[in-house]
């Protein structure tokens, strides 16, 4: 284990996480589903990477493969996930077994995770304090009393009212927003370098969502941690992310800074998604454009560019036969055969 953790990779100094060509397959009776089909992205220290995609695009599965928390019937079909801490310590996460001691020392300690459903993501029969204390005692070796103090501090940090009392509250006694705050306190309890937030505000109403986003932004700058923020909501991404990756059918189709994504998208899928967001004052009296067709069924993914059957720019003979390569425009990446075209005449969404 020691040799594994000390192995040095060639990673830029500012890099925290490198996800390289990760593939996750589900062998089902109906056929092989390539839920994640060669996803690569990186996260720099202290930055917020937004990952946008519709349901089933593989964004959560990719995040779980970072944590080695894939469902039991998933097959890890290749790829590498590497992490580099501020201390210079490096981990090859993809080499760790699902229940290995090595990955358990990363989970909860260096990577915290927030889940979508605050209603069910906390144990119903333990107080939130007890759940936070268990993690803190495990990774920081604190005594019970010290762990309790820390749990109260953490609850105060996530702006829980009356933390001294609510530390002994059970999840069902709290509202959804409060539970998500408790969940965040749990995830950041050991000052992780990376926080993975898997649709943390999807189950909340918009007011609470705004509060939670505000809280995450504040914690991020206070603790200097990086965040992978998974969502299907472009509005949320605009609010919190520094860079954005857009996923479609198990692949990343475009990665760019948040400004480039919104003002110079270079993939037709990103453009179509942006066009389908309602905006005040624009397009009044017109129907909101939608993306034609449906997400293909995972057992019959179209050949070539997986988006080609729904793409208004698709060129027959090219887009339906060849998988587009990654094309780079500075820091922007697009997997589209005709991305150059969008680079010349920016499409205003």
């Amino acid at each position: 284990m020691g040799s594994k953790t000390m192995k040095t990779f060639d990673m830029p100094q500012e890099r925290l996480l490198d996800v390289d060509n990760v593939q996750v397959h589900f062998p089902l009776r109906e056929g092989l589903v390539k839920a994640v089909d060669g996803v690569s992205y990186h996260v720099n220290k202290g930055e917020v990477l937004g990952i946008v995609g519709e349901s089933g695009s593989g964004k959560s599965i990719t995040a779980r493969s970072i944590m080695r928390l894939l469902p039991k019937r998933a097959v890890d079909a290749g790829g590498q996930v590497r992490m580099q801490l501020r201390s210079g310590e490096q981990f090859d996460l993809s080499s760790f077994g699902r229940n290995s001691r090595a990955i358990r020392q990363v989970r909860g300690k260096h990577i915290g995770m927030i889940f979508q459903e605050p209603m069910t993501a906390l144990s119903p029969v333990h107080t939130i304090g007890a759940q936070i204390m268990r993690t803190v005692q495990l990774h920081m070796g604190l005594s019970r009393a010290a762990a309790r103090e820390r749990a109260i501090d953490l609850l105060a940090k996530v702006q829980m009212p009356r933390p001294e009392q609510l530390v002994d509250a059970f999840p069902h006694q709290l509202s959804g927003g409060m539970r998500q705050r408790a969940m965040i306190a749990l995830a950041i309890s050991c000052d992780p370098a990376l926080l993975i937030a898997d649709e943390p505000t999807t189950a909340l109403d918009v007011t609470t969502e705004a509060q939670i986003l505000e809280l995450l932004k504040r914690l991020q700058s206070e603790l200097g941690m990086a965040i992978i923020f998974i969502t299907h909501n472009f509005g949320v991404v605009a609010d919190i992310a520094d860079r954005v990756s857009v996923m479609y059918l198990g692949r990343i189709v475009e990665t760019a800074t948040v400004d480039d994504i919104f003002y110079a998208p270079k993939h037709p899928y990103t453009q179509a998604l942006l066009r389908s967001i309602p905006r005040l004052g624009v397009d009044q009296g017109r129907r909101l454009p939608t993306i034609p067709g449906m997400v293909p069924d995972p057992f019959s993914v179209p050949p070539g560019c997986t988006f080609n059957p729904r793409c208004s720019h698709a060129l027959s003979g090219l887009c339906d036969t060849q998988t587009p390569p990654e094309k780079r425009f500075g820091s922007q990446m697009s997997r589209c055969h005709i991305a150059e075209q969008f680079a010349q005449e920016p499409v205003h969404a």
């Binding site: 989970r107 300690k109 995770m113 889940f115 979508q116 069910t120 993501a121 495990l138």
Partner: peptide, 19 residues
């Protein structure tokens, strides 16, 4: 989901399952 949360805290499988 709370079981996944427990795994994400770095607890061992035996501790997750039994607690």
């Amino acid at each position: 989901p709370y079981v996944e949360t427990a795994y994400a805290q770095g607890l061992s499988e035996a501790r997750v399952v039994w607690t």
